[in-house]
Design a protein around this nucleic acid. Structure first.
Lengths: 361, 361
DNA sequence: CTAGTTTAGTGCATCGTTACACCGGCATCG
DNA sequence: CGATGCCGGTGTAACGATGCACTAAACTAG
């Protein structure tokens, strides 16, 4: 019923609480092996588990990292959260998950709260253009890792970032379409007020230029600057875009690059609303390669993020204590996974060489 | 830089720390209004926030509830986690999220850890047949709410449950198919070693009997008893089922009831692998009505769980302190949402009356 | 006017762990 | 032989909030 304390362990092992504490904190060089074993036996026999609250009160630290995502309702973030938890578990950490819904206020409140709760670090999945709202907390020592938001000029230099190269991602997606022969493309996104998104968009433009197409001539569809960035909303945005683009008087595009898979899936749904066929009438490329991309009909061509690797890297950085390497920015390379939602504009099947998994080499 | 403590507030307000503590804990009847105001002003001016660790060490309580889900990678759980967080936020609580991956060991470890960390209650999304592995912790006072797992005989009586009526859900899904004229149905699931799953299956059988069909004559497809219950796995299970059922020599079913939407979507994918069309060649009903059900092609008929309502109820129960009503089991009624993945076996469109939203009245 | 009661607020021990300062004893050194 | 250094380990004062037991002052009743 009542918890086992360090004193009871000490008594059982015939040493002082200090010595037990020393063992617990890895200062084993301060004791003879026999003592160490006695203590370890006592711990095992009594089933002792250190009291986190007491420990934290004393040291001001936790074994917890905070994770702030836009919304776990979005399968991409759900999958990432899961990966981060796996990584954390492996090093004896906990993950405290928060949904910001991409609201800067809520984001700040969560960061403050986590900081006051003494988390070791925070992995922030946000792509707000500035980190000004968090600058003071970072200066006060918070270990902040931004995920999918490469470091920007003006960021506090202590901030580390882990991200894919969004420019390359946007480029891969787009040049896949131009290589298939598409010449009228549209970039579909909710608000572009996020640095990962502008990166993807720049990749889109670069690829167009490489194919001798004029980015300025391509309509870009973005939702109003409004807030919605969740799971439902992302799909809604895509669906709305399809309605807008294919019901007007202007000539619609033959290829679409969507900001993420949920938007892409929503877009596909919108196309169907109008009797159009994805992969035949219109080619669609998504981004993130969530599990559902492969299950969809047609299976969705998408830019894959190596979330498992990114999760371990993020965690590592969030836990790093001493050898700070300020402003470090890790950029991983995304992969294009070609499936059936893309084809040449004539309607022929994509003549693309890919391995069994659909990964373009 | 350094935190504001209760002593500083007390000094600023010209009272003792005890009085500030009294205010903080709602014992305002013990002080004159003027004092109360002075303290409140001091708190605001200094930006004081109570130290959680200290508070917890002293009281043994937290403002945190634990949430254990099989895997947030599954959009259903992601959506539920988000709803629970919303509910918690509204009453000033935090949610600590854990993925059990449906591993009883991991589940138990998490429960223990959360309990030792002093959470106020735990919402456990698990449907293991017994709670034996948690019985002792519950007896020691843990406030446990099981989600989507109605109370079973043999459960510790302190446990409360919040769930839909799975029997009704299975019944709704199945009778929808029989009413369409289907006579060869298959229930597709990963392991059935979970009470919510057996409930759905019983509903399946009841509906068959109601339609004068023999449940025993219907093949049930279940994956081996193995562990996998995650997001990837659920879809994989469905896909495998489709391969098995439609490649053998036995006459395949015309209608499928899947244990959840991920499995249903995987199943649809598997049908396509073999050139079959969902909603034409085979009707498929899912369960949960995740956001992707509507986006899918064809949009998936599914049994909707009222997750928002369930989340608030779960939270409420998890926080309830005193008036324990042991063994309470809340069962909500699920809704069938009819979309295009189901039709009569001839291939005609479903002649079902539904409102604009697809909700069957 | 005194004894008793209520009001408004305080003192202090305490939760379990940590880490710095310290200490006795033994070995080594010049 | 006395001084020095190291080894293995201990004593103790916090960390910040809580809440019981207590009290001084004001008020009430008889």
């Amino acid at each position: 019923m009542t918890r086992v304390t360090i004193q009871q362990v000490a008594a059982a092992a015939g040493v002082s609480p200090s010595t037990v504490s020393n063992l617990l904190n890895g200062r084993t060089n301060r004791m003879v092996p026999a003592t160490k074993e006695r203590i370890e036996r006592a711990i095992a026999e009594l089933g002792y588990r250190p009291n986190r609250a007491a420990r934290q009160l004393r040291t001001g630290r936790t074994q917890t990292v905070g994770l702030i995502v836009p919304s776990v309702g979005n399968p991409f973030w759900g999958a990432f959260a899961r990966e981060l938890e796996v990584a954390a578990l492996a090093v004896g950490c906990n993950v405290l998950l928060c949904n910001s819904e991409r609201d800067p206020d809520r984001e700040r409140r969560y960061v403050e709260e986590l900081w006051e709760d003494g988390v070791r670090g925070i992995v922030l999945c946000s792509s707000l253009p500035t980190l000004d709202h968090l600058a003071d907390i970072v200066r006060r020592g918070l270990r902040l890792v931004t995920f999918d938001r490469p470091a920007q000029a003006g960021d506090p230099e202590e901030v580390v970032s882990v991200s894919i190269n969004n420019h390359v991602g946007g480029f891969l997606a787009t040049s896949h379409l131009t290589e298939l022969g598409h010449e009228r493309l549209t970039f579909v996104s909710g608000s572009l007020a996020a640095v990962n998104r502008t990166g993807r968009f720049r990749g889109f433009c670069t690829a167009l230029e490489g194919a001798d197409l004029d980015p300025a001539a391509m309509p870009t569809w973005t939702a109003g600057g409004g807030a919605p960035f969740g799971d439902v909303e992302a799909a809604q945005v895509g669906r709305q875009a399809a309605h807008d683009l294919f019901s007007g008087t202007v000539e619609p595009p033959t290829g679409i690059v969507a900001i993420n898979d949920m938007t892409a899936l929503g877009f596909c749904r919108g196309l169907r609303d109008q009797g159009l066929h994805v992969g035949k009438d219109v080619s669609v490329v998504g981004f993130d390669d969530i599990i559902l991309a492969e299950l969809y009909d047609p299976p969705l061509t998408s830019v894959r993020q190596p979330i498992s690797r990114m999760a371990s890297l993020s965690l590592e950085e969030a836990l790093k204590e001493d050898d700070r390497e300020p402003g470090r920015s890790v950029l991983l390379r995304p992969e294009l996974v070609v499936r059936d939602s893309t084809a040449s504009p004539t309607g022929a099947t994509a003549p693309v060489v890919a391995d069994e998994d659909g990964v373009l080499q």
